[in-house]
Every structure is written in C-alpha cells, then in structure tokens.
C-alpha cells in the first residue's frame, strides 16, 4: 500500500515537471490515433469487431476500430440524465486526475449515449463543453440498434422509459489497445484506483 502511495506521489511529481511539453505530446498522440488504419486486424474478442459507423461530438463518422491503438475507458450515459450520469462523469474525471498530463494523452475516455433520439452530435458537443471535458474525451451517438449491440457486449443493462429517459447500469470498462475488455467496474463513486491500475497495466 505504502509503495503504491509513493508511486503515485512520484508520478504526480513527474507529471508536474513535464507540464511544459503537454501541448506537443498531446497533439502528436492525437495524430497517430486518427491515422489508425481501417484495415487493422482485430482479435476475435475485440469490442471493435462491432463494425458500425458512429458519430462523434464533431459530427464525424467514426468506427470503433478507430479507437484501437490506445487504451480506452468506456461507459454509456445520456445527457438528459440528472443524477447518475453526472456522477459517472465525475468519477471519470477523478480517474483522469490520477494521471499526469502526459499520461492522459495515452488513453481515451469514450462516452456512448443511450439516447439515440435526443443526444445528437451537437447536443453531445454542448454537453462536453458544459462538463468541461478535455480533448481526450470522445462522445458517440448511434442508432438504437447499434447502441443495443454495444450495451450487450459491454454488459451494460438499460431500459428505455416512457418519458424518454433511461434506467441503466453504471458500469465503466477498461479496453486495451485492441479493444479487448480488461476490466469492468460497477457502481457510482467507486474507488478509482482499480481503474487507474487497469489502465496502467495496458499502457
């Protein structure tokens, strides 16, 4: 336990020292991510085998396979959600805060919306701004069918209610560079260190 604390402390210090380089390293990493090849050969158990086009908060069409190349923390939310989803986003921010600026550019947060009707790319972009989500956060919009497929793979139960909102499980997953689920955590306000550890394991 002590060792872990020391490790975290060291990382924080190292992180501060590297602050100056942040912009540079962030952009170069981004570039390589975007350049990820379409024809990447995915392992059989990769989530990214779901071969559908999504729309990100910038309205660009993307496939999940484009996420390959760096680890991902993935969860599902909807922006009209008043309680659970803001808390989930808050949990993710806490996880983000456990990493140095440099490290933050080495993985992504992916929020997939349950709400195929109301969560348009524009709405997702506004949400990202209001929530002050950084560049390494990707918000995805898809149709009801692809949302259902992904939820089945991620084992995130949900149910659309009559008022258009969703009851849903609060589950976040860590995916490695190939889109293989390496860790899942249920619940809100859970300890962030297992997730941080899982990400570090697949860096």
């Amino acid at each position: 336990m002590k060792k872990i604390l020391i490790l975290i402390a060291v990382i924080l210090v190292v992180g501060c020292q590297n602050k100056k380089e942040e912009v540079k390293s962030c952009c170069s990493t981004n570039k390589s991510l975007i350049a990820a090849q379409e024809t990447v050969l995915l392992p059989d158990n990769s989530v990214y085998n779901l071969d559908r086009k999504w729309q990100n908060q910038n309205g660009e069409k993307v496939s999940l396979a484009k996420l390959s190349g760096s680890p991902v923390i993935m969860t599902m939310i909807f922006t009209h959600c008043e309680y659970a989803c803001p808390m989930m986003v808050n949990d993710l921010k806490k996880i983000e805060a456990s990493f140095s600026e440099v490290e933050r550019d080495r993985f992504r947060f992916v929020l997939v919306s349950f709400d195929d009707q109301r969560d348009t790319p524009k709405r997702l972009k506004d949400y990202a701004e209001v929530q002050n989500l950084g560049k390494n956060w990707i918000l995805l919009h898809g149709d009801a069918e692809q949302v259902k497929e992904l939820s089945v793979i991620l084992q995130i139960s949900y149910n659309k209610l009559e008022d258009g909102s969703f009851s849903h499980a609060n589950r976040k997953l860590v995916l490695d560079q190939n889109g293989i689920i390496v860790f899942g955590q249920d619940g809100l306000q859970a300890n962030s260190w297992p997730v941080v550890g899982a990400i570090r394991n697949v860096f």
């Binding site: 659970a84 139960s157 009851s167 849903h168 499980a169 609060n170």
Partner: peptide, 15 residues
Amino acid sequence: NSISSNEDSRNKEEI
C-alpha cells in the same frame, strides 16, 4: 439485458 434495471437506479441507488 434490460432486466436488471429498475426505476430507482437513475435517481439514487445503484442497480
């Protein structure tokens, strides 16, 4: 996979 959801989950409690 909708069955472990319930009404309360979006308000206060975990599923």
